[in-house]
């Protein structure tokens, strides 16, 4: 599956200030019995957004907005910790997010997000604090120059992203295709190991 290439993203932010937002919060386990990648967006952060009867409460920072204008989620540190469920980035992407910004994003979530067109952006603590304090801010993410820019003061900072994942996103390079191109080398490795 090749991804839709992404170079630049200009959007407003939704802010969830909590630290250690785990993937059970992003998509509770009872939604994991699905056998497809699609349709999880309505259940994203389900227990934060719906009441006991399963009706949308509309009082969460995630609701009451036009998702087309709010494609960036700013969250507290250690975002995406816990379970390796790829359903978490599937649900966030299906909801409409294209980027997550935090000071520190959990390893497996980061890896999963990058494979689903969802940019996990790690920024310095100062920028992170500034973004947490201004929900709804319009920010500009440039993957070519690896910069985030926002605010009247012209705040600009560089974010960290794995160079390979960046190339996959910019050029639509498919990681599975990259592996398949190396099958001859993989076979050679297997033969060499058989020998000893």
């Amino acid at each position: 599956m090749s991804l839709e290439p992404i170079q630049k993203l200009i959007s407003r932010t939704i802010v969830l200030r909590q630290e250690n937002i785990d993937t059970d919060q992003i998509i509770p386990a009872r939604f994991l019995t699905t056998t497809t990648r699609k349709g999880l967006g309505t259940s994203v952060f389900f227990d934060w957004r719906y009441n006991a009867e399963g009706r949308l409460r509309n009082d969460s920072p995630l609701d009451g907005f036009n998702p087309a204008e709010y494609k960036i989620l700013v969250a507290g540190s250690n975002f995406g910790c816990g379970s390796s469920r790829e359903h978490a980035p599937w649900a966030l992407a299906d909801f409409g997010f294209r980027a997550i910004i935090s000071s520190d994003i959990a390893d497996i979530f980061k890896s999963n997000a990058l494979k689903n067109g969802l940019l996990p952006l790690e920024v310095d603590d100062k920028t992170h604090r500034r973004l947490l304090a201004s929900p709804g801010e319009e920010i500009s993410v440039d993957l070519v120059s690896q910069t985030v820019r926002f605010g009247e003061e012209g705040w600009q900072t560089v974010f960290r992203v794995d160079p390979f994942a960046r190339r996959c996103m910019l050029d639509g390079v498919d990681p599975l295709g990259h592996l398949i191109n190396q099958l001859a080398v993989i076979e050679k490795y297997e033969e060499d190991r058989r020998g000893f």
């Binding site: 390796s84 469920r85 790829e86 390893d107 497996i108 890896s111 999963n112 494979k115 689903n116 794995d162 390979f164 990681p175 599975l176 990259h178 592996l179 398949i180 190396q182 099958l183 993989i186």
Partner: peptide
Amino acid sequence: GIGTTEVGHVLATQCVLQRKP
């Protein structure tokens, strides 16, 4: 632990793409 996309990578190639931690 790996994600589902990587489960697909391993099924298809017996390999994963991984940077050394």
